[in-house]
Nucleic acid binder design. Sequence first.
RNA 1: GGAGGAGUGGCAGAGCGGUUGAAUGCACUGGUCUUGAAAACCAGCAUAGGCGAGAGUCUAUCGGGGGUUCGAAUCCCUCCUCCUCCGCCA
Length: 426
Amino acid sequence: MLQVNFIRDNKEQVLAGLQTRNYKGEQLAIVDKVLALDDQRKSTQTKLDSILAANNKISKEIGGLYKQGKREEAEVLKAQVESQKGKVKELEEEMRQVKAQLTDALLDIPNVPHPNVPPGNTDEDNEVFQDWGNDLPDMGEGAQPHWELGKKYNLFDFELGVKIAGAGFPLFRGKGARLQRGLINFFLDEAHKAGYEEFMPPLLVNEDSARATGQLPDKEGQMYHATKDNLYLIPTAEVPVTNVCRDVILNEKDFPIKMTGHTPCFRREAGSYGKEVKGLNRVHQFEKVEIVQIVHPEKSYEALQEMLNHVEGLLQQLELPYRILTLCGGDLGFTSALTYDFEVYSAAQKRWLEVSSVSNFETYQSNRLKVRFKGGDKKTQLAHTLNGSALALPRIIAALLENNQTAEGIRLPKAIQSYVGMEIIS
RNA sequence: GGAGGAGUGGCAGAGCGGUUGAAUGCACUGGUCUUGAAAACCAGCAUAGGCGAGAGUCUAUCGGGGGUUCGAAUCCCUCCUCCUCCGCCA
């Protein structure tokens, strides 16, 4: 969430940001609401503090009087403090409520989009930041989609997944399982080379962690919830990995913090069915390698570019046609200031598939995470956080299979042949 | 899962109802001394929030939450975590 003081000092900028996100009319009133609640919070605290200060002072006097044996005088003062108790309780309750309302209101305000975020309403308005050009692969008439190829080469089995768990839980087997394992290792090795520390985090997280990275309360329905122990299955490694730095005050010298991790990701994807989700296009459980950076505020857009280059390098090594989109105001994630999506062309489905999303959250996430650092001036301030997929597996596998199908089998790109242990899947 | 013990500042560790936001040591930062370093000495060293132009001052925080009390790090309840023993187990 945004900091109240930032909103107060940059109200026009925040309002303009909301407009980029297509907030109109009454929806913009949220900003004034936040400021009003904050004013109320302050005045309530001033009242409360002055009573508490007076009470504390008297209590100390009582201590002194008891030592001197002046019981009666002490009793008088006791009664005096006691008489304020109701008022204190009342103000404390008011404080609790105002704070809760303020937090709720702040949670309703999305991040301020970066000036480069194009206007627009839907994914159709996303701006192509980097195009592939016209020579998209044409596999001809007989090209098979990945779900057919998976069956043909016995790489994965959706029916068995349904039997064991349910729809959207694919079962990888044989060469399909090896392909997936090889890709994960390839991605992790590349991240390692780029200076990211590798993590193997818990796959279930507690409420505090889910709240800190913003999955709660906004995306409650999208996560699997182990209610008995009140733990959530992670929808992305971003959650456990970013939480490494929760409530930490870093030293400026620690920057940049670069973390990576491979995890399965669990998403309920409630309400999405149909063609768009066929095969591996959208599943409840998938593998992903995530990269996270925590950096000095002045360096975050450099870091974003670096992450962009990293993801681009992966796709080039995989020899897949890709394009990069700048998400428009309407499609931009609630917590993000600037997001680039990577899409890979699926030759048989004849459509672009999103395989990575790289975002700069600036201080929006770190404010809730309380990731701060001390700069040269000894002041603590919020760090910037960024993350991106590098990469998500299922759609990469879909594109690899579809784009590389030949009569002899599926020819793997050079970069991963040693990882998978074969040149061709036949 | 059962029984017992413990959680205090970056770390170690006092305090166990009254001016204690918290002794002391270490670490860290600045200074004195020194050609330089070490040692020694002096000073500083938590976070968040309110009020204030500022100096500053007030409030909250001793694992989390709640309670008792004029007053809680200290007493009570509850949750969490760690340690020891027993049981179970990949």
